[in-house]
């Protein structure tokens, strides 16, 4: 069990993301709200991303045993998580995420075919950082409007996830250091901060209603 800490942290990330995703899908099935649908996609993606990385570490520990996780698996997991962060930011009505100029669109897409998976991982991490920072700021602004205390916890959670992504991206400067584990721990702290207000939502009388759309 060379990657015990990474295994545990990714598993926690998978479970917390899954729990929030399930809450969101119950909400979507009961109300048909598009916002809850976007949150469902967001948290299932985040959960799946952690699961892919966890599966990669498990395969490395028990099957491959080369001493290093396959970079492609890690990049895939982080890419899937980035999709989740995009949907959180998208729920806050991102209006100018994609550049309108055809030139900038081509510049934005073509480098992905020219760089290695390790560099793609850094691109995903930096995009995730921007999306999460945006989500944290928007959530904090909504707190100032509505004074909903749960929004503070979610804003802190998104900010911690952003900081974790930043440290994860920075860890490529010191590849074998503790920085990656610190980044993972901060990200899990962020997910738990997201889960705290969600866990207080009473679901006892909520049930799936197949007739609602």
């Amino acid at each position: 069990m060379e990657f015990l800490l990474e295994n545990i942290l990714n598993l926690i990330g998978f479970l917390v993301g899954l729990a929030i995703g399930i809450m969101s899908i119950i909400g979507f099935r009961n109300t048909g709200s598009p916002t809850l649908f976007r949150l469902t996609i967001a948290f299932f993606s985040i959960s799946l991303g952690f699961f892919v990385i966890w599966a990669g570490y498990m395969a490395e520990d028990f099957v491959i045993k080369s001493g290093n996780i396959e970079k492609g698996i890690q990049t895939l997991g982080i890419g899937i998580q980035t999709v989740g962060y995009f949907f959180i930011a998208f729920s806050h009505s991102i209006k100018s995420f994609f550049p309108k100029s055809r030139y900038f669109r081509s510049v934005g897409i073509f480098p992905l075919f020219l760089v290695s998976s390790a560099q793609i991982e850094h691109i995903f991490r930096s995009v995730s950082f921007i999306l999460l920072a945006y989500g944290a700021i928007e959530t904090m602004l909504s707190y100032f409007e509505n004074r909903n205390k749960g929004a503070i916890s979610v804003a802190i959670g998104l900010a911690l996830l952003a900081f974790g992504e930043f440290l994860g991206w920075y860890s490529f400067v010191f590849p074998e250091s503790i920085l990656y584990s610190v980044s993972m721990t901060i990200k899990i702290g962020g997910l738990i901060a997201l889960f705290i207000p969600v866990s207080k939502i009473p679901l006892t009388k909520i049930k799936f209603d197949e007739g609602l759309e």
């Binding site: 909400g27 109300t31 959530t139 909903n148 929004a151 916890s153 979610v154 009388k205 909520i206 049930k207």
Partner: peptide, 23 residues
């Protein structure tokens, strides 16, 4: 059913508000 929907609506409005969103 409407009463149940309304209860779910209030519950998940609170859920979405925590994310700074409205349903």
């Amino acid at each position: 059913s409407g009463r149940e929907f309304l209860q779910a609506y209030y519950t998940f409005t609170n859920f979405a508000n925590n994310f700074g969103l409205s349903i």
